[in-house]
Design a protein around this nucleic acid. Structure first.
Lengths: 226, 226
DNA sequence: TGCGCGTATATTGTATACAGTATATAAAAT
DNA sequence: ATTTTATATACTGTATACAATATACGCGCA
């Protein structure tokens, strides 16, 4: 019976916390692709027992961020070029589906939110706060998926996006002259497509944008294989 | 170094076995929607310790077949009508995507395999072996997804299909005069669309078929809510 | 020197023991 | 009688102990 007062936050279980920790460590590049992770390592680093750590690793493996080598260890996943292409093609499919569900249903308030998001990202960019840029960027896309009101889609999208986040770290490392403003133009175009309720155009944008980013990431992945 | 001889099957871990066991128990209706599952129950039934059981339950929860009530128990998931609709709409999206990837690439051998599958299903139907009918039916669809050579897509599809299998059990219970031959006609139409490489037609078929089955399952789910 | 073989070691896989939490039951208080 | 409070119970959540497995290393041997 939540009444607004005393917003008790359920103490999230240790395994969930470990999932968070390890996931962000991978996304932020503190755990690098191919790195070996042993359960003993994590027990020491985090000061908890192996049980919740094992449970976390199982989930992360399912999420595609790490791979298990039975009886040996687990490794931070190394993405191949074709992995990257598949990840982005799948993302395109999911976002197109979100578009089908949502394109006729966005309210003016939603559109406002999206415009505000773009401006927030622009501000973060001016402040050179690239971590904020990434998170606002992701939030923009997530908003559209959340709005589609389709939990299964949302979960699948979040999983794939975790993998993308891991790969984007490589792009940032490999491509220094990356045009960060491109993303703002992309977002504006997407909002426009939603506003004009032009599904075909939206899909074309999704495909085009994801293919471009995918190509960048493939370059990054390939230059990282040295 | 697999050479065809001595096909050593890696002894699958206990957790994996438990996942299998529980999943098929749910799909075959031995564990019914809403049933309470405690870890102690399973330790007794399966004669193993709680650890691998917990790990299995975590995966099954992620798969959407059970839900966890923290510190209380886990329950076999109860599907609502809108759950069912979302499951099938997502499946349609995935199978359409598989179609996009595969429609130009099926060899005559593939087509033969698909025709053979249909005949196998017809035979199982004549033998009144409905369990075989279901599995051949699923294998037909899975083949098309496997052929798209897109592991991410395949995994997502398998997950959603596990949920569908759980719901199909309800349909079998609720609708006794179900026309089992419809599925054969559906499959034949799908093969034809692949053969003629008519993507638009394939998508229409996918949508139509899934919507029909979804409607049946919604009826089943609603009649089960008593 | 190079290869097969056994043993050591590191690490996961599994079992059990202990701690914490939510619900149900019953007693106490108003 | 109804509500509150205390306590018991039945679980899950976490820690630790033990077993099984895969790799690495070193030794014997050709």
């Amino acid at each position: 019976m939540s009444n607004g007062f005393l917003p008790i936050t359920r103490p999230t279980s240790l395994s969930e916390q470990v999932v968070e920790q390890v996931r962000t460590a991978i996304i932020e590049g503190r755990l690098k692709h191919g790195d070996r992770i042993t359960e003993a390592m994590l027990t020491e680093m985090l000061g908890i027992s192996r049980t919740p750590i094992r449970e976390a690793l199982i989930l992360l493996a399912r999420e595609g961020l790490i791979v298990n080598a039975p009886n040996r260890a687990t490794f931070v996943r190394v993405f191949s070029a074709s992995d990257v292409e598949q990840i982005f093609s799948f993302r395109t499919t999911l976002e197109n589906f979100a578009g089908e569900l949502t394109i006729g249903k966005l309210s003016p308030m939603d559109i406002d939110w999206l415009h505000a998001s773009i401006e927030k990202q622009r501000a973060a960019l001016h402040a050179d706060d690239f971590k904020a840029v990434r998170s606002v960027d992701m939030a923009f896309h997530e908003y559209l998926v959340v709005r589609s009101d389709h939990p299964i889609l949302l979960r699948a999208w979040r999983e794939i996006v975790a993998q993308i986040a891991a790969v984007l770290y490589l792009r940032a490392e490999a491509i220094h002259d990356y045009d960060e403003y491109q993303s703002l133009r992309d977002h504006a175009a997407i909002v426009e497509a939603y506003q004009s309720r032009d599904l075909a155009h939206l899909k074309m944008l999704n495909e085009q944008i994801n293919q471009r980013v995918a190509a960048e990431c493939v370059r990054a992945v390939e230059s990282a294989r040295r």
